[in-house]
């Protein structure tokens, strides 16, 4: 089979997969309505709601664009704070055995706590509003970035550091010319994991943190408003935007970095 036709076939399967999902959704909706006699948004209802919201109809007082923008900005803030602290810390922990032994246990403890469980700490620190959500996002991105960077840098770095030592490199050269570039790969994996972690927790954080906007907030509000089609629209947007960032934006950046440093991603 030619390359061209095998690509076409792959695309056809992807479309088939999406259609299957939509059919399953539609079937479940009708079944639920028939058996339990409660309204379950169908594909059509959700699509109509999506169009109305996209055309500017407000949802809980503000447009869907505002909700999306607020969610994204919380996520970006939490993510960038976590990354700017997590990468340097991860590198240091990967480099120094002493620092690893001192700090890694703490990071592992943080790792076991799911983002929304930080609500008490977040409220004590920041009260209601934007900040607690950002804090929760920070916590889950932070540990992912630190752990992935540190353990990857440690194992990948070791062989290059050994080689550098053999050539008589001093500590400065080893750290900046050898260990840091070798850590690029684990840093990128850490970012990828952190990105996904942060996005998922953003939704949960908005549900519990008293933020008065965002996709997570809109979903939890449907408990009272019973506007389930809008909740479904928000779920769609969460998934679509999450996929877009990970599959399109991040992969693009990742491949550029890889090419630049001459590493091909393994696995």
């Amino acid at each position: 089979m030619g390359l061209e036709s095998s690509m076409l076939l792959k695309r056809a399967r992807l479309i088939a997969s999406i259609i299957m999902l939509l059919i399953a959704w539609e079937l479940i909706a009708h079944l639920v309505v028939a058996i339990k006699n409660v309204p379950f948004p169908t594909v059509y209802e959700t699509a109509m709601r999506l169009l109305r919201l996209l055309s500017g109809e407000p949802l809980y007082g503000i447009s869907i664009y505002r909700h999306l923008a607020d969610s994204i900005s919380r996520w970006i803030l939490g993510f960038s704070l976590a990354v700017s602290l997590g990468i340097p810390l991860g590198i240091l922990l990967g480099y120094s055995e002493v620092l690893w032994d001192l700090f890694m246990p703490i990071i592992y403890v943080i790792q076991t706590i799911p983002g929304p469980a930080w609500i008490a700490v977040a409220l004590i620190f920041f009260g209601l509003g934007n900040a607690p959500a950002i804090f929760m996002i920070f916590m889950v991105v932070f540990h992912a970035v630190v752990i992935t960077t540190a353990s990857g840098a440690k194992s990948i770095g070791r062989k290059y550091v050994n080689a550098a030592k053999m050539f008589g490199a001093d500590k400065f050269t080893i750290f900046f010319k050898v260990f840091l570039p070798a850590a690029t790969l684990p840093i990128i994996s850490g970012l990828r994991i952190g990105l996904g972690n942060g996005w998922r927790v953003m939704v949960a954080a908005e549900m519990v943190s008293g933020a008065a906007s965002g996709l997570g907030y809109s979903i939890i509000e449907s408990r009272w408003s019973l506007d389930f089609p809008s909740a479904f629209v928000c779920m769609l947007l969460i998934s679509a935007f999450g996929l877009f960032v990970q599959r399109v934006i991040f992969r693009h950046i990742e491949q550029r970095v890889m090419r630049r440093i001459g590493l091909t991603r393994a696995g």
Binding site: K159, Y160, N162, K165, M166, F167, V178, T184, I261, L263
Partner: peptide
């Protein structure tokens, strides 16, 4: 300790991939 008077060719590849 390690030094440039004894150089090893390792079993695994250790050329620096970014250079």
């Amino acid at each position: 300790g390690p030094g440039p008077d004894r150089v090893m060719v390792f079993q695994e590849e250790t050329l620096f991939p970014w250079m």
